[in-house]
Structures are given as structure tokens and as C-alpha cells.
Amino acid sequence: MIDMQDAAFGYGAEPILSDMTLRLAPGSFHFLTGPSGSGKTSFLKLCYAELLATAGRVTLFGEDAATLDRDRIALTRQRIGVVHQDCEFLDHLPIRDNIALPLTVTGRDAGQDANLNELIAWVGLSPRARARPPELSGGERQRAALARAIIMDPDLILADEPTGNVDWEMSLRLLQLLCELNKMGKTILIATHDLALIRAAKAQVQARVLRIAGGRLSTAGADL
């Protein structure tokens, strides 16, 4: 699904990430940990071609990310659901339309999509479906972002600190949703520094923990 071979990335001469070698197998569940500023977000951006590796090779669904043109990148992103800590929406549209946005941009009629209502109910946003994004709480926004990320039934879900702005109860609820998706066969990669969340996940799914420190990727110990 995602294959990195000695991938590196940096904005200047000094790389932020280097010698990244990783294979994300279909159906796997990974956490990505590391201190703030260690490059977790950059790592995730390499996974959906927001950033391109400055050295080495990143392969997304069998295609070298460096050779993808803009249209191929867009098509690749339709197979990847991304959830950010500061989820961005189209503030002029109701949250229902925001969740349906991936359908809209691919020319599908979201109004006729039965899955949409089901999905909104699944993330517990049915009563808030007509609200606009600025009217939602942090937890509601995170759930809306998760719903938007999975509306296209993507193969891979990338989440960048998805519980960073919500309380513990909401964190567990979001984690529960991600674990359920994993059980449905989705590949999950979550960047977080919340060790309690990782422990809670390990009780539900087989999760592997990766750590970025000093610009390098390593497998974290099983004692987390």
C-alpha cells in the first residue's frame, strides 16, 4: 500500500527525515509517535504526496509518488482518507455537504447516497448535519473529518493527532471508530504522542508502533 525505501525529506540542506524504510501492509494498524517537531506530520504528508521525498523512494499503491502528475495525485488521494488535528472544512457549507465533499468532487450525487446518512449517524452527527463547521465543537469537527475521510471507502486512513483537540472520552470514541474501520479491513496510520491512546488501542486491535526521533524511523518497544 505504502512503501518507503530510504526516503528522506527536508526543506533545506539539513533533512528532517532520513533513511525512512517502511511498508504499510493492507489491513494493518500503525501508530506513529515522536516528540513535537520530530517530523510526524511531514511523514504523513509524504504518505499522501503533499510532500515529495528529497531522496529515496515513496511508492503509493504501487506508483512512485515522484512520478505522479497532479491528476494522478488527486486520484490517489481518493483512495486515502486524511484526518488532521486542525480539520479544515468549507465553512460556507453545512457539515453534511462537507462530509459528502469527496463524493461531490468525483461527480457523484451525494444527495442520493444512502451511505451518507448512515455514516453521519455512525459518527453521531445526525442532529448537527445542517450546522456549519464553525458552529461545531472540537470533537464534532474531528468526527466530521473522520466521516469525510472514509466516505469514499478509502483503502488507507491517515490521522494526524486526531485526538489533539478533544477530551479523553471523545478520544476513546474516535479511537473506537478507527478500530472498527480497521476491523473492516482499512489500513490505519495515526500520528500521536498520546501513549494512553496507544495503550487503549492495543487492547482492541493489533497495532504496531513506529517512532520518529532524530529524523529516523524505528519500531517502538512492546511496553507502550
Binding site: R70, D71, A74, L75, T76, R77, Q78, V82, E88, F89, L90, D91, L101, P102, V105, T106, R148, M152
Partner: peptide
């Protein structure tokens, strides 16, 4: 710009 970022993130093509 935020609209453009969101649209690209969810897989919208430039032409769209």
C-alpha cells in the same frame, strides 16, 4: 486558499 487546500485534500482534480 483554505477551500483550495480542502478540495485538493479530498481528491479534487485541478480541472474540477
Amino acid at each position: 486558499e483554505q477551500v483550495l487546500r480542502v478540495l485538493r485534500l479530498v481528491g479534487a482534480r485541478d480541472a474540477y
